[in-house]
Design a protein around this nucleic acid. Structure first.
Length: 594
RNA sequence: CGGGGCGUAGCUCAGUCCGGUAGAGCACUGCGUUUGGGACGCAGGGGUCGUCGGUUCAAAUCCGGCCGCCCCGACCA
């Protein structure tokens, strides 16, 4: 590609909307342009990179037996009504009508379509297992897009779907995806970490997310290097040892004026926050048949509630923060709230298992300015559910070996879900077994965001000068900078460009009539891993300069060897990436709890 | 959806408080000088100041509605 006629300009100044390094660099390097919130155009540079990522996805899906296909972006509402997600998912699903008034949706994902296809395509156990995938646009009307390509509304995703006779088959395909996802990350030059995750609205029981660990990530992760435990904080467990607060003491009501927070209470009484109980209030949605109900969570004062776990333990579909009036209905007094004296018909009380096992906590008295000391579970208050609802925290002992966990952040690049019969059941995707019995197909679904992968690679592989992409993802292998001022040099540059093309090297040829500084700055920004410079000066020294992007030292390569030299360097770079595949985690070698 | 910020040239921003002929840098066009890390000079082109309405002799500026973008929170397959 000749830069003189290339579409996509670099920006010298940082666009004000750039909130992450990846976004800033992808904008400045002329890869992407925002059209509206969460909607991006991919300029030629980005498109080349995205197609390379897609090709890696195709190859790895092929290796584990996937067959590529393509399913529509627009779906009839009936399909989503049958699965129930038409009703479960609210605003994130974009809905519209066609000219006949028929309800349509923009695809958020394709479980329904796959299940629907299975109804006609899969009849017999002889046709299973199967694995299909496509690389297709999705739309999710996110309440708030951010981070450039990190969180967008329209995006391209590779999503694959496995179809099995039974859970053993599902497990096998799940494990193959687990391994493939690690390989995909490595081939893109990005280290990913698999963490256990919440199956959430996908249904099913086991799920992992493949995370790019970075402070820009939106998910919090609990990871223990020592034991290998790795989990999304949403479902992270940790080992709990109750403090020894002595044998149960009598319950005593005490005056605690102004101590309406845990910190103030602990300071007032001269005790540690861990000797108190913290009460939090949510409104739980318990499904269409039940009205909303107050959900009261109780954790130890030094801990926070894990909302996902509280929701699960309470048996609610979803939680939202409760309003003051809603709290008052059950008889609770915020700031001095107590698990005692709650109207149990109006609230679901969930007590953390650690709290239930700890004696003599200080809790509110449901009366402004008063608390109880010596509160003991079972004697002084009871719960509808006792379960783990406390959020893991920095240094919390991991559930396997009790080693301290580290809380970090990560971007979810991919995920794998064991769906089971969630969709095949509701949509009637059945197969007939040897004995003539019908069973729902056992499904799994597996996604990787293509644009998000590019964003993460860009985030990881950039410096103050711009992008420095891995050879597998960079739009071009090498940028050929011509500083030619004489016609004869220009002719040599043209010849070199042609010989690089002939050698199969992907070359961006800077043939523009601009100053050297501009060319070097753009070369640094655009992220090609190698740079070759031809000029009167280099020719005087015996050829052309060649080296890594921004290399301090460059080697002089004779003109006639230049193309093969680049080709070899590119091959070496690919070989390096291949070597990084050798010691990747796999399902078989993963540590317990990973 | 709640809280906050912003909307002026392709980009980054000044001008708004205190109403009175729309600005700068970068980018772009032409000419000349330059030429190994975002050169210089001269001459140009480009904006119904997000939008609709109100106040006023007069609105980028004051007031109100709406729209859009960004940040924090909520939400997130």
């Amino acid at each position: 590609m000749r830069l003189s006629s290339f579409f996509g300009q670099t920006l010298r100044e940082v666009p004000s909307e750039a909130d992450t390094a990846s976004y800033e660099m992808l904008l400045r390097a002329g890869y992407i342009r925002q059209l509206a919130a969460g909607l991006f155009s991919y300029l030629p540079a980005a498109w080349r990179s995205l197609r390379k990522i897609e090709q890696i996805l195709r190859e790895e899906m092929g290796i584990i037996g996937g067959q590529e296909m393509c399913m529509p972006v627009v779906h009839p509402a009936e399909l989503w009504q049958e699965s129930g997600r038409w009703y479960e998912i609210g605003d994130p699903m974009a809905r519209f009508k066609d000219r006949r008034g028929r309800d349509l949706v923009l695809a958020m994902t394709h479980e329904e379509v796959v299940a629907s296809l299975c109804k006609t395509e899969i009849r017999s156990y002889r046709q299973l297992p199967q694995m299909v995938y496509h690389i297709q646009t999705k739309f999710r009307d996110e309440p708030r897009a951010r981070g450039g390509l990190i969180r967008v509304r329209e995006f391209v995703m590779k999503d694959s779907y496995t179809l099995d006779l039974d859970f053993e088959g599902l497990q096998a395909q799940y494990e193959r995806h687990y391994d493939a996802y690690y390989r995909i990350g490595a081939r893109c030059g990005l280290k990913l970490v698999a963490v256990q995750s919440d199956p959430g609205m996908m249904g099913g029981k086991m799920a992992h997310e493949f995370m790019y660990v970075s402070p820009i990530g939106e998910d919090a992760l609990a990871i223990c290097e020592a034991t290998g435990y790795a989990s999304n904080l949403e479902i992270a467990e940790f080992r709990k040892e109750p403090d020894d607060n002595g044998p149960p003491a009598p319950l005593k009501k005490i005056h605690t004026p102004g101590a309406s927070s845990i910190e103030a209470l602990a300071a007032f009484l001269g005790i540690a926050t861990r000797q108190t109980g913290k009460i939090v209030f949510f409104m739980g949605n318990f499904g269409s048949d039940n009205p909303e109900k107050l959900v009261i969570g109780v954790v130890r004062g030094d801990m926070d509630v894990n909302e996902v776990q509280l929701c699960y333990q309470a048996g609610a579909r979803e939680l939202r923060p409760a309003e003051a009036e809603e709290i008052a209905v059950a008889g609770a007094v915020p700031g001095y709230a107590s698990p005692r004296d709650i109207d149990r018909s109006k609230a679901v009380i969930v007590v953390d298992d650690l709290v239930a096992a700890t004696t003599n906590l200080v809790v509110g008295a449901n009366e402004a300015g008063y608390h109880f000391t010596g509160a003991n579970y079972g004697r002084d208050y009871e719960a509808d559910v006792v379960g783990p609802i406390a959020a893991a925290y920095e240094g919390a002992p991991d559930p396997i070996g009790g080693e301290p966990m580290h809380i970090t952040r990560g971007v979810e690049v991919g995920n794998i879900f064991q769906l089971g019969t969630r969709y095949s059941g509701s949509l009637g995707a059945m197969y007939t077994d040897e004995s003539g019995q019908e069973h729902p197909i056992i499904m799994g679904s597996y996604g990787i965001g293509v644009g998000r992968m590019l964003a993460c690679v860009a985030q990881e592989h950039s410096d103050e000068y711009g992008l420095d992409l891995p050879v597998s993802v960079a739009p071009w292998h090498v940028v050929l900078v011509s500083l030619a001022r004489q016609g004869s040099t220009r002719a040599k540059a043209e010849g070199l460009y042609q010989s690089l093309l002939d050698a199969g090297v992907e070359v961006l040829y800077d043939d523009r009539d601009v100053s050297p500084g501009v060319k070097f700055a753009d070369a640094d920004l655009r992220g090609t891993p190698f740079r070759m410079t031809i000029s009167e000066r280099s020719l005087k020294r015996g050829g052309v300069e060649f080296g890594r992007r921004r290399a301090r030292k460059v080697e002089i390569v004779p003109l006639h060897q230049a193309a093969s030299c680049v080709r070899e360097a590119v091959q070496e770079a690919f070989d390096d990436l291949s070597r990084s595949l050798e010691n990747l985690p796999t399902w078989g070698t993963r540590k317990q709890g990973a």
